[in-house]
């Protein structure tokens, strides 16, 4: 496993080696008033039930919110420091030896800017083939159906609501104690903060594990590349799939069989592909 992680880390490194060199300054959008951390669980293998988990951060401002992986932000930030790439390689090597390479990796490496650049819009930034790409679309209004079920999540009294989104049925537990209509990933539109959400197949879920009001700091627009090519959501996903297929083919030809079995899937983006 560690061997696989080492190789995966190396592949990730090749993909991101230029980040630190050409990146632009980050842009402050507005002060953050709430920081939520979600445990993001993805079933990696539906046959074995193997689950991977990451910590995702939702920073909420008065007008704009941002949602991203804690570990990915750490990795990307490290690479932007002087000799950051070398530091990242060393750290990845160390983590791989300690069997925790996932501390620098994540199933979802995208940065989601909610209600940005305009209210009701969403901008997603990611990288394809070592190039920055972004797409902006209207924030889809989910048709939530409200249920009477009640439960407590992280001490918040939560209510259940259900909606179909991108081809899957999502169940969300929201709380009226935090009157912001936000949630993890692209889930939103409920009368309060979404504390827990999962789709009915059990493959993906988010659970609130920490809630911090007035966390300090700002909501940042992270510029990790010199520029971001604007595309549509479908174009981005198609480019990702094509890139992955090329990597697998390349690995197959060079005899790196590990990549064929262990190459990272587009993960959460698969859900975005659903119409």
């Amino acid at each position: 496993m560690i061997n696989v992680f080492n190789k995966m880390a190396f592949a990730c490194l090749l993909l991101s080696v230029q980040i630190g060199v050409f990146a632009q300054k980050n842009v402050i959008l507005e002060p953050a008033i709430i920081e939520c951390r979600y445990l993001d669980r993805s079933m990696k293998d539906t046959l074995t039930g193997q689950i991977e988990a990451d910590t995702m951060i939702l920073r909420i401002g008065r007008n704009v919110s941002c949602f991203y992986s804690k570990d990915v932000l750490f990795s990307d930030s490290l690479k932007r420091t002087p000799n950051g790439t070398t530091k990242w390689i060393n750290l990845m090597g160390q983590y791989a030896r300690e069997g925790r390479s996932r501390d620098l990796l994540c199933n979802d490496s995208d940065y989601y800017y909610l209600d940005y650049p305009e209210q009701g819009q969403i901008t997603v930034r990611t990288k394809v083939n070592n190039k920055g790409v972004e797409y902006t679309e209207e924030r889809e209004t989910l048709q939530w159906e409200f249920r009477d079920s009640v439960k407590t999540v992280l001490g918040f009294e939560c209510y259940l609501a259900e909606a179909n989104f991108r081809g899957r049925k999502w169940l969300a537990w929201y709380t009226l104690e935090v009157p912001v209509s936000q949630g993890p990933w692209k889930l939103w539109g409920l009368p309060g903060l979404i504390c827990e959400a999962y789709e009915d197949q059990g493959q993906y879920s988010y659970s609130l594990v920490s809630f911090t009001p007035n966390p300090g700091g700002d909501i940042m627009l992270y510029n990790l590349f010199k520029s971001y090519e604007k595309k549509s959501r479908f174009e981005v996903f198609e480019a990702l799939v094509r890139h992955r297929e090329l990597m697998i083919e390349d690995a197959r030809q060079s005899g790196n069989s590990w990549m064929i079995g262990h190459g990272r899937s587009p993960g959460r983006k698969e859900l975005d592909w659903m119409r």
Binding site: I33, I34, G99, L154
Partner: peptide, 20 residues
Amino acid sequence: PLSIAEARIKEPPMRQRGDT
């Protein structure tokens, strides 16, 4: 005035990272 519920932090009883 801005009013937000108090901070709460919770972690699962244990976490797993690879073999750790």
